[in-house]
């Protein structure tokens, strides 16, 4: 049990190291990425520029810079931004995490409930009007660009109908911390969570539905039916359990990716200062320390989620264990 675990861990570290090297390389391949002139200010003399470069350590050879960057990020944790001098990177990530977590947790609640409801309803009577209707709705949800949906939501709630009774409760865009104002925190997250959840409700309701139907047709389900169990009991007690496995693993992968900053577009459109927005701003500003930190953060969650899912599968399905 230990050996595969260690092997898996090593694989994770390898992947993350690979990602960090690629990120580093991409940054230095980008024209205009040298922050010295930006920091040195307009019309700086060559001496000023050189002094600023020195203070950033940009005169060192690339591998040394990479080593220093990694060391400051993980070991001493005093890595500072290129854009805002002296501003520590790790606290920025720590500050942005609860925002993303709130958004993603809210969306997850919505989509689990929504997809659960739609999927079960659709699977109860496959092929009928309800099934077709729900699946079409789900497909529509999957087909909309999330940032566009967010923009439309904003248009309706912030601009066109903001003064009406329907949307006057909608707070201005931005984030309110739970500690500051719990009710405000909730209000701020309602629409963004909903927007993010739409895509996943569409996706998961379809996955759940097909998994349920497939499980329904398995032999042992037919046996249960032959034994005289009611349709609903068959569905809920047996089919649901097996189909849940695949859904849960998919959920793990998606949730992991989102927590790591995958909700970037939603955060940007709704002005939420989460990890996704932090990443996006850092990429725009070519702020290498922050980029590296956010990429490491995001890939950690993706890699960890993948590892957990694989281990879960190995645990549940003995056939896969030997692979």
């Amino acid at each position: 049990m230990i050996r595969p675990l260690v092997a898996r861990l090593a694989q994770m570290l390898f992947v993350m190291a690979g990602i960090s090297v690629i990120t580093f390389a991409i940054f230095f391949a980008t024209p205009g990425s040298d922050p010295s002139a930006r920091i040195a200010g307009r019309n700086a003399t060559p001496e000023t520029l050189a002094a600023v470069r020195l203070s950033f350590g940009l005169d060192q050879p690339l591998p040394v810079q990479y080593g220093l960057l990694m060391q400051r990020l993980f070991i001493t944790q005093d890595l500072t931004s290129f854009m805002n001098r002296g501003e520590k990177v790790v606290p920025q990530i720590v500050a942005a995490t609860p925002v993303t977590l709130s958004l993603v947790a809210g969306a997850a609640l919505l989509w689990v409930a929504g997809a659960g409801l739609f999927g079960v309803l659709a699977a109860l009577r496959p092929g009928r009007a309800l099934d077709r209707g729900l699946m079409l709705l789900g497909l529509v949800g999957v087909s909309m660009p999330v940032y566009w949906l967010g923009a439309v939501v904003n248009l309706v709630t912030q601009s066109r109908f903001h003064d009406s009774w329907l949307f006057s409760w909608v707070p201005p865009l931005g984030y309110i911390a739970f500690a500051d104002d719990p009710w405000g925190w909730f209000k701020v997250l309602v629409l963004p969570s909903f927007t993010l959840a739409v895509f996943y409700i569409g996706l998961y309701s379809r996955v759940l539905r097909s998994a349920l139907i497939e499980a329904n047709q398995q032999d042992y389900i037919r046996t249960a039916r032959a034994k005289g169990l009611s349709e609903r009991r068959v569905l809920l007690a047996h089919a649901l359990r097996t189909s849940l496995v695949s859904v849960v693993t998919l959920f793990g992968l998606d949730f992991g990716a989102l927590v790591g900053g995958g909700a970037l577009l939603t955060e940007v459109v709704f002005g939420l200062p989460g990890i996704g927005k932090l990443t996006y701003d850092a990429l725009q500003a070519l702020d290498l320390p922050v980029i590296m930190a956010t990429v490491m953060y995001a890939s950690f969650f993706v890699v960890a989620a993948n590892a957990l899912v694989d281990m879960l599968y190995a645990f549940i399905d003995p056939r896969v264990r030997d692979a």
Binding site: N43, T45, V52, S55
Partner: peptide, 8 residues
Amino acid sequence: VSSPTSGT
């Protein structure tokens, strides 16, 4: 501090 305008 290598102010931007130190040289100009």
